[in-house]
Each structure stands twice: as C-alpha cells, then as structure tokens.
Write a protein that binds this DNA or RNA. Structure first.
Length: 878
RNA sequence: GCCGAUGUGGCGAAAUGGCAGACGCAACGGACUUAAAAUCCGUUGGGCUUAACGGCCCGUGCCGGUUCGAGUCCGGCCAUCGGUACCA
C-alpha cells in the first residue's frame, strides 16, 4: 500500500489536542460547592448508554451515539451551560465470566484490561467526557451502593393506599415478607441439565442452550424477585409527559400490557346434574367433596359482555385446581396431557402451537349468567402466569376460543352482533348457525337477556355491575408485566447483601457493605443449580447460625442507577449527594440503541421511582429526553458481521482519515435515528471538506510547511457574506438542537464553499466557522483557532471558551426575493421582486408577465394566490 | 397474525402544505501538471423537441381524496426492515 499523502496533518494535531485535554481537563464539570462551579449557568446532563467493555473493542455503532452526545455536550458548553457528560462501564457480565471459565483468568483482570482498551479507543475519537466521573459497576465503591439500593427495595413495600413505596415498618399486616418489594419465590427458570446451570431467556434459542445446543427445560427454583408489577400503573402513566420517541413509549406500554376487564366466578356443577353436552359425565362422583369448590373457579376476561357466550371453561394445565376437579374417568388423559405439556419448551408451546390441544377434565361449571352447565377443559393455550390461570371459552368472539371449539366440537354461541337486534334473539339455541370466524370487534349484545341490545362498552359495565351485586365478580385490571426475576447463579455479579438464618432471609447491616465476592479459582456452574459462590465455604458461613445468600444480581442492576452515580461519583457517604442529585437530575438527553427500549429503560425507571418514593431522589423519572440511534450497516447494506466480512473498525478509519473526519462522517451519513449503510467514499468526501477548512486558514510554504495563509485578513465581510454567515449560524444552531447533525454539516459545507475562492477571507467569518464546527471537529478547529490566535490574538485563547456566535436578523433579510410564477399550480417563470412588494403589486406583476399571459390566453382568471416571498399562482380556466 | 418504522436521482440524503432533489458520493467534461495524484471549475432525475438560446411533458412505492397548490394532509393497498407472539 502506498502511503497516502494526508490532506491535512490530523495525525499530528489530533494526538496533540487529546494530550492537552487529558492534561488540562477542560471538560471537567465541577459540582455545586466545588471550586470553579458557576451557579449562574444553566445545567445540561447529556448521557450515553454506557458500554459493556467487551474484548473486541469498539465497533462503528458505539461512536455513533457517542459522537451525537459529544456534539451536544460541546455545543451546550459553548452556549454557557454547565454540562455533565460522563462515561463509565457496565462491567459485570457473562462474557468475562465465560472467558474466566475457559482460561482461568479472573474476570476482574479481563474486565480491567478491556476497560483500559475501550477507554483508549474512546479517547482517540476525542470525546469530551469528564473522566473524573468514570464509574465501573464492578468496582466495590460502586456496587456497594447497588447493594445498598437493593436493601432499600428489600426494606420497603408498595402501599396500595398511597400508591407509593414505603418503609416496611409502615406495614401493619402479619407477614411483612409477603409484601416486600424484593421477595423470594419458587419460579420456573430455564434449567439446562447438560450445562448444569440456569440460563437467561436470551441464552435460550429454539428451546436449546445458545452455547452447546443442549436441551433446556423449565424447572422451579427459589429465586429473588422484584415487585415491579406494583408499579405497572405508574410506569404507564408517568411515561406520557416524557420526550421519548412515541414508538418506544408504545413498546413499554405494550410490554406492561394493561388490560381492563372483570373477574367472574363460575360455580362447579354438583354431581348428578343433567348435562346436555356431555352425558357421559353424568352421575360421576367428584374425587373430593364438592364443598371444596364452594368458591368456584374465577376467570379473568376483558369481555364480560360475552358472558352468555361462554360455552366451556379452560384451565391452564399447571393450575392446581385441575387435580381436584378431574374425574376418575379422565384422570389418565389429563395426566398424560400435563406430562406432554411440561416436556415442551416455552418455544414449542407458543411458536409451534398453531393447532389447539387440550383435554376434558370430566368436570362441569355453571355459567353464572345462563345457568348452563359447561365443560371444564385444560389446554396449554391458557397460561398459569396470567390472570387467574383460567378462562371462560367464548368461541364466537375470541379467535383462540373459536379454534379450540372447532377442534373439539364445542358449542359456539353468538352474543355480539354488529347491529342491535333488540331482544329478538334472546332464546335462540346455540350453534343454530355456527359462524365461520370469531367476531372480535365491539358491537351490540344479543342472546344475552340481561344486556340485550346494549353496545359493548355499556354491556360490559352493566354485566359487571350485575356480577358485583350477585357477589359473582368484580371489575379488575391485569398486566402482562411480571415481577422481575432478579437472581442469577453466577460468579461475576453483585452478591446479595442478605443472609439466611433458620430458613429466613435478613438484611446485612449497611455498615458491612460492600459485600465483595469471595476469591474463587473455579467459576464454573456447580452442576446442581447451586450458584458458584457455594464453593467459597468460608465466605458462605456468615456466623454460627447464618449463611450468606449465594445468588448474584443480574447485569441490569448496575445500569439501573449508574446515571445517578455520575452526579457524584466519589461520594462515599451516600449513593449520590443530595445537592448534586438535585442539581444535575434529571438526564436532559439520553442516547442509545433500541435494544434497550424495554428492559433497561423500564428497570431504571422502576428503581428511580422506588428511590423517589423513599425520599432519596428529587425526580420520579430519570430520563427526560430519549433518542435511539439507528444501526450502521456494512457497505453492502447488510448488518455488519464477521460472517459477511463487512465489519468496519473505527480505529482503521481514524488512522487513515483522522478522528474529526470519522466523527463528521458518522453524523453526515443521515438522520441519527435512521438505519444507514457505511460508505468509505463518503468518509473521503467529509475528509475533503475538513481539508478545505484547513486550507482556508493554512497554506503550504516553499519548504512544505503549513503556515497561516495570507488570504486571512482583518476585513469586513461583504453584505452577501454576512448573509451566508448569519443564516449558517442560525441553521447550525437549530439543527444541533434538533439533533439534525447531517444538515448542520451541510450548512457548514455551504459556509466553506462560499469562502474557498475569495481573495481575502475575513477573520471574523473564519472565527465564526471554527466555533460552529468545533463540536463536530474539535481537534481541527482547536488547532486552527490557536494558529489564528498567533497572529490575531484573542482572549480567552481557547476555542472551547468562546461563546457560541449569535446571528443577527438584520443580516438575514434581503432586499429582493426570487419568486415563482405559476399558472394552475405549474411554474411558468421565475422573477426577482423587491421584498417589500405588496400582494396587489405581486398580483399585477404576475398577470402582466409574458409567460403567464401565454398560458392564460383564452382562459378566464378565477383567482390569484399570492404567497409573499414565495410565489404567485394564477388560477384560470375556461 | 398483531404492533412499529421506512419507501424521493446511479448511491447517502434535503425540503414550517408553496420553485422536488440542498449538501455529499459516484460519473463525465475542463483547468493546472512532462505525467499522475492532489486541488480548482463545470455538467449530471427521465423523456420529447430545438441549429442554438430555449421550450414542453413526466417524475417522491401503488390507487383514490382534500386543496389554487400534496413528497408533506386524509382513506385504501403493496413492498422492505425491525419488534412481538395464544396475555383471555
């Protein structure tokens, strides 16, 4: 490869400025009370989603969002803000642990190396982070407070009266452990017998382990849970005012999945009652006395108005009631079915379950509205984890119930019609004319004596009221959101600050934090499902009578609050100082990938709310404005991957074109939020633009050295130049505020193009350009600013201390404007008119215009539309 | 299936309902050079027409609507990409 001549000496000046920033720390933001803090300036907190420092280093996706926030940070500083722009490391995580298992290298060592590598790469791009505030979630000074926050959650409960978290001491019930926001429960987990470990959902692909491809089964295990469901309502409500993409808000709302509906109690039919649909069950004794079902079976439905259409009932196979309901005759079939279902992985159960399956239990329930006996089935399309684990089957108005009824020949009764039919159909026999599809849409109740003729919304209300009166049901709300499974059987995570004594959990005193993981040589899973920490026998024994909790927290834990720690990273008396938190929070701009649209952003909001409720924080939401950057594709338009060989390494690009060109290209590619392909020639184009800026200020002398160009002169810009300058100031500012960086760069290109050929480049124009460009290309502009200052000194000397230029309207207005003359909406001529021309004058000019006359000849002018400074449209016809 | 996003030149993209294609890439032509690179200048949506200046028509995924005027607003489709998956 031949050595390409550098278009400008970025390879010298970029390291020079990076070293200066390192030494002088111009981007350090003092906290209130610290030396150098200026209380008169407004604050701005601009945050990136901090990375997991993987061994492979940065790829071009990371710096996309980071460059955007860096531009905003630098811009806001020039605008006079106190800017908090920190960076840190989401350092606990699986890859380091797996690497440790393979090589025996302690995860802490690997993590430290990776962090050093990442940090070096980030510095090479020239980001203006306040490195004094760097945090790592795996650092004891940090996770000490993660554990402390866990204890706050553990020591509190959600008071439904106040809709807030409160200290557990305010709870007056018998069993505080049953209401804590952190609790222990037996829940099904992904257990991989072959690997001898529990896996996260993300590590299970097609019912097999991502690593090794071994079968994964569901197995109940004792786990720590966080009661995020208590916050479901607030997590939805408090989302509304946030400045987030609507799509992300929707994603969160759907994830929480609020459903309004009713719980309805169905009584169990007494034995011996005649049953039309299934005569075989007649007279068969229940395995247990029917009195046990005094309270019946409760189902959840969003359509209580279809109660009359409920022709059968389905329980989840795991529903504990099934054992007691099943008749002797059906016992074997039910047992077989339950075995078959439990052998299926989640994926098989959902993805492959196009065809409905199920088994009759032999038992019957009574439809409380129609008093009919309806059969009780079990089927795996009913989930134990949602609602009550039981449904009423309304095949006429639910697609799944419809399929099921079809499969097993259950009656289908229409109880909602698209038009009101009054009471006429009240007594119609079910299944008279089975519909071909389920009608899910709202309509009017039919065949439903209590509510016939009512529109769906009203019917729901009335039937629910009736159920309440009868003591058969109540209005209720269900959420898809489940409590958060918070424990992992891993080594490389935060240990729980919890001990066990006599089979009961209790908190470790705050004074004993942090709980540091014990040293281990063997990080492998134990194979029994017991966490690896069990190997540290000494560590496990807390006291004579107590042992430590062996689970660790999931990787999400640190990222749930790292943005708070950035406000006050070295505080060792509190997780964040009150004054610092009040001053900096909340985050004004948060940029990151869509992959965190739900989990991280939901978990962090949850923790924020708990801490807010407990009085530790000043705001209830952490992130005011959220923006998702789009993915960068390879040059071939495909997702970058080793497989396609289309991966771009940022450091290679920087070596060839410089960090400024890299930054500017990433921003010039297209809108930040859009997915877009990489283009090497595009980088070259941007690099050429920066080189033109360089040569606007510098020229090469006889000796081949770059010196300040004599064309730079202290002259007044012409009026035309002033217009270019001031309209660019305005546009660039507006574009940065709107995060429209691609158009901001286009504006600066226009600026440069307007001055490349002039003989005398006005000094003031150059200074303006350099400040505008500084957030985008900080090295280049710093160097040129310094060089200009050597002949034309300014104070303060550094470009980073300049004020952002103000545009002046007087330079934007023009005397004349070119307007379009249209006839019937088509442009027929363009003319230049005085800006002050009145509507009447413009109309007259237009009608007198030769081209216009040509096109309206023989027609009658009906109307003339005048838009000043834009166009005149003559509407004419026969 | 459902939800969401996107669809504009050869390519990346611009356009508060008001002159579609700013800015950049690529391509072509020219200047400079012994030559090349670099740099600078110019042309560049498609079709038709003119000796030429110029002129006309078409054009923002497709069909329709609102409007003096639609890439932009409304209704209905189609395609691509993402997310999600029996949540009663």
């Amino acid at each position: 490869m031949s050595e390409r001549r550098k278009p400008y000496p970025f390879d010298i000046l970029e390291p020079k400025w990076q070293a200066l920033w390192e030494e002088r720390k111009p981007f350090h933001a003092p906290n209130p009370g610290d030396p150098g803090f200026d209380p008169d300036r407004p604050k701005y907190y601009v945050l990136d989603m901090f990375p997991y420092p993987s061994g492979s280093g940065l790829h071009v996706g990371h710096p996309e969002g980071y460059t955007a926030t860096d531009i905003v940070a630098r811009y806001k500083r020039l605008r006079g803000f106190n800017v908090l722009h920190p960076m840190g490391w989401d350092a606990f995580g699986l890859p380091a642990e797996q690497y440790a298992i393979r090589t025996g290298q302690h995860p802490e060592i690997t993590t430290r190396q990776n962090i050093a590598h990442f940090k070096k790469q980030l510095k090479r791009i020239g980001f203006s982070y306040d490195w004094e505030r760097e945090v790592s979630t795996a650092n004891p000074d940090f996770f000490r407070w993660t554990q402390w926050i866990f204890l706050q959650i553990y020591q509190s409960w959600f008071n439904p009266e106040t809709q807030r978290a409160e200290p557990i001491t305010t709870y007056t019930g018998d069993d505080p452990d049953s209401v804590r926001l952190a609790y222990v429960a037996e829940v099904p987990v992904n257990w991989c017998p072959e690997l001898g470990t529990v896996l996260a959902n993300e590590e299970v692909v097609d019912g097999k382990s991502e690593v090794g491809g071994f079968p994964v089964v569901r197995r109940p295990m004792r786990q720590w849970m966080l009661r995020i469901t208590a916050y479901a309502e607030r997590l939805i409500d408090e989302l509304a005012p946030l400045d987030w993409p609507e799509g992300i808000k929707l994603l969160q709302r759907n994830w929480i999945g609020k459903s309004d509906g009713a719980e309805v109690r169905f009584d169990i039919a007494e034995r011996g009652v005649r049953n039309a649909e299934s005569p075989t069950a007649e007279g068969e004794p229940f395995p247990i006395p029917s009195s046990e079902f005094r309270n019946g079976i409760t189902v959840f439905t969003t359509r209580p108005d279809t109660l009359y259409g409920a022709t059968y009932m389905v329980l989840a196979p795991e529903n504990p009631l099934v054992d007691r309901l099943t008749t002797n005759e059906q016992r074997q079939a039910v047992a077989d079915y339950r075995t078959a279902v439990s052998a299926k992985s989640d994926l098989e159960r959902t993805d492959l379950a196009k065809d409905k399956s199920g088994v009759f239990t032999g038992a019957f329930a009574i439809n409380p509205a129609s008093q009919e006996r309806i059969p009780i089935w079990i089927a795996d399309y009913v989930l134990m984890g949602y609602g009550t684990g039981a449904i009423m089957g309304v095949p006429a108005h639910d697609e799944r119930d419809f399929e099921f009824a079809h499969e097993f020949n259950l009656p289908i009764r229409e109880v909602v019609a698209d038009q009101s039919r009054g009471n006429e159909g009240g007594g119609e026999a079910p299944c008279a004319m089975p519909p071909l599809v389920a009608t899910v849409a709202d309509g009017y109740a039919v065949n439903s004596p209590l509510i016939d003729g009512l529109p769906t919304a009203e019917a729901k209300r009335k039937i629910t009221d009736w159920l309440v009166e009868q003591g058969l049901g109540r209005a209720t709300i269900n959420y898809k959101l489940r409590d958060w499974l918070f424990s992992r059987q891993r080594y490389w995570g935060e240990p729980f600050p919890i001990i066990w004594r006599d089979g009961k959990h209790e908190a470790i005193p705050e004074s004993e934090l942090p709980v540091v993981p014990p040293p281990l040589d063997d990080f492998k899973p134990t194979g029994t499902g017991e966490p690896p920490l069990a190997r540290a026998k000494e560590w496990v024994r807390y006291s004579e009578a107590a042992t430590r909790e062996l689970n660790t927290m999931p990787q999400w834990a640190g990222s749930c609050w790292y943005y708070l720690r950035f406000c006050d990273p070295s505080n060792d008396g509190r997780f964040v100082g009150e004054e610092a938190e009040r001053y900096w929070m909340n985050v004004d701009l948060y940029v990151g990938g869509t992959e965190h649209a739900v989990l991280h952003l939901l978990y962090a909001r949850f923790w924020q709310k708990v801490l807010f409720d407990l009085g530790h924080l000043s705001t209830t939401e952490p992130f005011h404005r959220l923006v998702n950057q789009g993915m960068i594709l390879g040059e071939d338009g495909r997702k970058m991957s080793k497989r396609w060989g289309n991966v771009i390494d940022p450091l290679d690009v920087i070596a060839e074109y410089g960090a400024d060109a890299f930054r500017c290209y990433e921003m010039f590619m297209g809108p930040l939020e859009q997915m877009k392909p990489w283009s090497m020639t595009g980088v070259e184009g941007v690099s050429r633009f920066l080189a033109r800026v360089w040569r606007l200020v510098m020229e090469e002398n006889q000796a081949g050295e770059w010196v300040l160009s004599p064309t730079v002169q202290e002259v007044e810009p012409t009026r035309a130049q002033l217009k270019v300058i001031h309209s660019r100031i305005r546009k660039v500012g507006e574009d940065i505020e709107a995060l429209s960086f691609n158009t901001a760069i286009a504006q600066m290109m226009i600026f440069v193009n307007a001055f490349t050929t002039v003989e005398a480049v006005p000094l003031t124009a150059l200074r303006t350009l350099l400040v505008l460009l500084n957030p985008f290309a900080p090295h280049l502009t710093s160097e040129l600013w310094e060089t200009l200052g050597s002949r034309f000194p300014v104070s303060p000397a550094a470009i980073t201390e300049q004020p952002w230029p103000e545009y002046r309207d007087e330079f934007l207005v023009e005397d004349e404007a070119e307007i379009a003359l249209q006839v019937n909406g088509k442009v027929r001529d363009r003319i230049t008119v005085p800006i002050a021309a009145t509507r009447e004058e413009l109309e007259a000019i237009a009608l007198a215009n030769g081209r216009v006359q040509e096109f309206i000849a023989g027609l009658t002018v009906r109307k003339v539309v005048v838009i000043q400074k834009k166009l005149v449209n003559v509407v004419a016809n026969k």
